[in-house]
């Protein structure tokens, strides 16, 4: 286990190193400079600013400086936000993103498991059809459309929840719902397929031959065997949530990293974009690592072989 963990962490560091390197040099290729958006500056002023940011040094030196900073959690200084350190910008905004992202993930996966399992148990009936329709709709309707509709109908018209801003649980409800849609649909789809497969397997047949009733078969044999593989899609779902959060946070004006990312893109705030790219990759790596470990813990076939 320790050996496996060590290997995995080594690969994560390697991946992040590659991501950092690629991002850095891509940013150096950027057409616009951080000053494009500023008012006209004299060449001396520009030179001064370049010096301040270390942009007058050769690229490889800048790279080493940046890399050294990243190791210490220093992603440089934001171009746009009154010279705030990027690391501060990110850490102060991580909380809201993690809250709505986490809530969306938990809600989506749990609801998806139920929808998928019910669909499989009642396979090829109207219940199954409805479950399929739900997942197709939630997979197909883009998060930004869903978010706007939720905001308008549940927030503005019915006044059930605040339409935007940040300040307590009620503010998280609508964004959470908007984010949960995609994991719900994906989980339901996956769970249904898995469970239909499991339900037609030989060991379920043997369980029937033992005289287990339908509830017993599902509870004791079918659920566990179809739940285990669901862990493998948590990683891709996390990606969906990250993607979704960029627009959802924007629509609901949530001070999270998704909103920051879009803002930085639109203002050419390269240090922040780079910092967030690395943070997103790191989060994804950690999620993938955790799901792999969990998968190994709950599947006896993998557990023993390790």
């Amino acid at each position: 286990m320790a050996k496996y963990l060590g290997k995995r962490i080594f690969y994560i560091i390697l991946t992040l190193f590659i991501v950092t390197t690629i991002t850095f040099f891509l940013m150096k290729l950027m057409p616009g400079t951080p000053l494009t958006n500023q008012a006209k500056l004299t060449p001396t002023q520009i030179h001064q600013i370049y010096k301040q940011y270390g942009l007058d040094k050769p690229v490889w030196q800048q790279y080493l400086v940046y890399l050294g900073g990243v190791i210490h959690g220093n992603f440089g200084t934001s171009f746009q936000f009154s010279n705030q350190p990027v690391s501060y910008l990110i850490s102060s905004r991580l909380g809201p993103s993690l809250i709505i992202g986490g809530q969306g993930m938990v809600l989506g996966v749990l609801a998806g498991l139920i929808v998928g399992a019910v669909g499989a148990i009642k396979a090829n009936t109207w219940v199954d059809t409805s479950a399929t329709i739900i997942s197709i709709l939630f997979i197909s309707i883009p998060s930004f459309v869903l978010a706007v509709l939720l905001q308008y109908y549940l927030g503005l018209k019915l006044r059930l929840f605040p339409i935007a801003d940040w300040g307590g649980f009620m503010y998280t409800v609508l964004p959470t719902l908007a984010l949960a849609a995609s994991p719900l649909a994906e989980t339901a789809r996956f769970m249904r397929t898995e469970m239909v497969d499991v339900l037609s397997s030989d060991y379920i047949e043997l369980a029937k031959a033992k005289g287990l009733n339908k509830v017993g078969i599902i509870y004791h044999h079918a659920l566990r065997n179809s739940l285990i593989p669901v862990v493998t899609i948590i990683g891709p779902l996390a990606v969906n949530i990250m993607t979704g959060s960029m627009v959802v946070e924007n629509i609901f004006s949530i001070p999270g990293i998704g909103e920051q990312f879009v803002k930085s893109i639109l203002t050419n705030d390269y240090p922040t974009i780079m910092g967030l790219t690395i943070v997103y990759s790191a989060m994804l790596c950690v999620v993938l690592l955790i799901t792999d470990i969990v998968y190994g813990l709950i599947d006896p076939r993998i557990r023993i072989n390790k």
Partner: peptide
Amino acid sequence: FQDPMTSLDPT
């Protein structure tokens, strides 16, 4: 059943 490799619950 015929196939003992698949007729036991793996988990």
